[in-house]
Design a protein around this nucleic acid. Structure first.
Length: 567
DNA sequence: GCCGTTTTCGGCCCGACTGTTTTCAGTCG
């Protein structure tokens, strides 16, 4: 087990402990303390095992004697006695029942203990037969039945791209009515997936307009400042209405993350103030300190403005206090896109159509990375077909000057770690990307070996979508990523952040780690059609969440400097 | 369980909404 993987395991244990403690009816502040400890450890930059070996566990913020003891036991024995003991105190089924929205610890405990409901399946049966109406009341019974049905249908989080387009529709609808709305929540933070959509408005007419939005299936709740609806697509959208003067605090509050907000509040308290979704106020006099804009509120708290993508309690508050926030990369910083496909392999558009679309975006260069020969299913190119493609590219380069199309390939890393062509053939490419699609069910050790071997191959410049995850369908390969990152560093190779909406790979945690280790990254669209070139924005969101500045990315460089990295 | 430039004890982030507990607990974000 390596590095942050262990941090993740420890955090999981503490989160489970928190969940069970909550179910067991433990003091709620104890529960909060466990969760806070878990979050801190999960976001730790150092390896918890190292800290543990140095006997410095209690120097971690929010880790005191109690949690340190539990972590020590877990790292020594792989078990956590407190977790096991807590599990025995909680009736079977309580943690599962708490997964149903509307069921908290109290209701779950009551259902399990007094009504012998041990699972969501039991709950569904009980609700259907009417035997639980007495326990939860008529209205709740109906609501819970709906929630259980939704869980069964597996309506889960949307991809960022889906949320993005949905919100664009809603915003356009409001615009027609001359009502301004601001997206907040995890969408604004650029998270890879989005659960509910949060919107903010300052116009009181927004509530009325919102419930008439054509996509609305059902109004969940409707108060003077909060309206929640379900769309026919199954997505929950929450609209909050605030006063114009309160928009700054409202944006901070509803953008989150929750942990970021908690940290902001504690700074407010230290200064004798109170922070809520309306304003930053003096605790004694109730006088407003700041509320209109986010900048103003952060400023009063002694912080630089923190971009939404960084608001995850991953050290951004300290950085903002010390004036050390990164100057995050933007889409406009990109000079080119180094992964896209054409009809030569599995793309949907001709070289020229793709190139013109890329040029129109303002790029100076692109690379066509059509698949190599062993990816038969994607019409991978033989050496001979590549030679033909290069001629077509040469001709296009004449036509589109000074725009430059680089000759490239998405070379399949075969099951033994070798590539599809002879080393001498690769010399014809300007830039070479490698990726693993096939035999991905090999052991993590074997997959790691393949990735390492690819990075050590003299021709390879970039490792594309390193973990090969498909969000919602497939976990990423359990690679030894610290080793992959180290290998990239030692060989002067680049790692990709793939902007394809269901890849977004590397994710922000590992992209940040790679940057800290001094590895250059690239953000690409992996487009298969001209329209998909804009997917690079989701990759950029990942880069921003990874604290990347333009200098950390290779495709912000002018062509000449980029080529120096591709040897 | 954690923490401390008012505190080693007594706080802990804060408010909205729902339901049926007619004054507030439970849940959520």
């Amino acid at each position: 087990m390596v590095g942050e993987v262990k941090n993740h395991d420890v955090a999981e244990q503490l989160d489970k402990l928190a969940q069970l403690a909550e179910a067991a009816g433990e003091d709620r502040f104890k529960v909060i303390a466990y969760r806070r400890g878990a979050t801190t450890i999960r976001n730790l930059e150092e390896d918890i095992e190292e800290i543990w070996k140095q006997g410095k566990l209690t120097e971690i913020k929010y880790v005191g004697e109690g949690i340190a003891k539990k972590v020590d036991e877990f790292l020594r024995t792989g078990r956590m006695g407190a977790l096991e003991r807590m599990g025995e105190r909680v009736p079977t089924g309580v943690p599962e029942l708490m997964k149903v929205p509307g069921i908290g610890p109290k209701t779950a405990y009551k259902l399990a203990k007094d009504y012998h409901i041990k699972s969501i399946a039991d709950l569904r049966a009980g609700l259907a037969s009417g035997s639980l109406t007495e326990a939860v009341g008529q209205v709740m019974a109906t609501k819970l039945a709906e929630e259980v049905q939704k869980l069964k249908e597996g309506s889960s989080r949307m991809l960022l791209v889906e949320a993005f387009h949905l919100v664009a529709q809603i915003v356009a609808y409001f615009e027609e009515k001359r009502i301004e709305v601001d997206p907040a929540g995890s969408l604004r933070r650029g998270c890879s997936t989005v659960g509910d959509i949060d919107l903010l408005a300052t116009d009181e007419k927004a509530a009325e307009a919102f419930v008439s939005f054509p996509g609305v299936d059902r109004v969940i709740e409707r108060g003077p400042t909060r309206v929640s609806v379900f769309l026919a697509t199954g997505t929950q959208v929450d609209l909050r209405i605030v006063k114009k003067d309160e928009l700054g605090c409202a944006l901070i509050y509803f953008t989150g993350s929750k942990q970021h907000n908690i940290e902001l509040r504690s700074i407010a308290i230290d200064r004798g103030w109170k922070l809520n979704e309306y304003a930053l106020v003096d605790a004694k006099s109730g006088k407003v300190v700041a509320s209109k804009t986010e900048e103003h509120v952060y400023g009063k708290l002694g912080l630089d403005f923190i971009p939404p993508e960084l608001r995850e309690a991953r050290g951004e508050i300290e950085a903002a206090r010390d004036g050390k926030l990164p100057k995050l990369v933007t889409v406009d910083d990109l000079r080119g896109d180094l992964q896209m496909h054409s009809t030569w392999s599995d793309g949907n558009a001709e070289l020229e159509e793709m190139a013109r679309a890329a040029k129109k975006r303002g790029y100076e260069y692109i690379a066509f990375t059509d698949h190599s020969v062993s990816v038969g299913i994607a019409n991978g190119l033989s050496a001979e077909r590549f030679r033909k493609q290069w001629k077509a590219i040469d001709a296009l380069n004449q036509k589109l000057k000074p725009f430059k199309i680089l000759k490239s390939v998405e070379a399949e890393v075969r099951s033994d770690g070798s590539l599809d062509y002879e080393p001498s053939f690769f010399e014809n490419f300007d830039v070479v990307g490698a990726s693993i699609h096939q035999s991905y069910k090999q052991s993590p050790e074997k997959l790691t070996e393949r990735a390492v071997k690819a990075l050590e191959h003299p021709a390879v410049d970039i490792l594309f979508h390193p973990t090969n995850r498909i969000i919602g369908r497939r976990e990423g390969h359990a690679l030894d990523l610290p080793r992959v990152i180290r290998t990239a560093k030692e060989n002067g190779k680049m790692l990709e952040i793939d902007g394809s909406p269901n890849r977004l790979d590397l994710d922000e945690i590992w992209a940040r780690r790679a940057m800290q280790e001094g590895v250059k990254l690239v953000v690409d669209s992996d487009a298969h059609s001209p329209g998909e070139l804009e997917n690079v924005q989701f990759g950029v969101a990942r880069a921003r969440r990874a604290w990347l500045e333009p200098r950390h990315l290779a495709n912000t460089l002018p062509l000449r400097d980029l080529m120096k990295l591709c040897t």
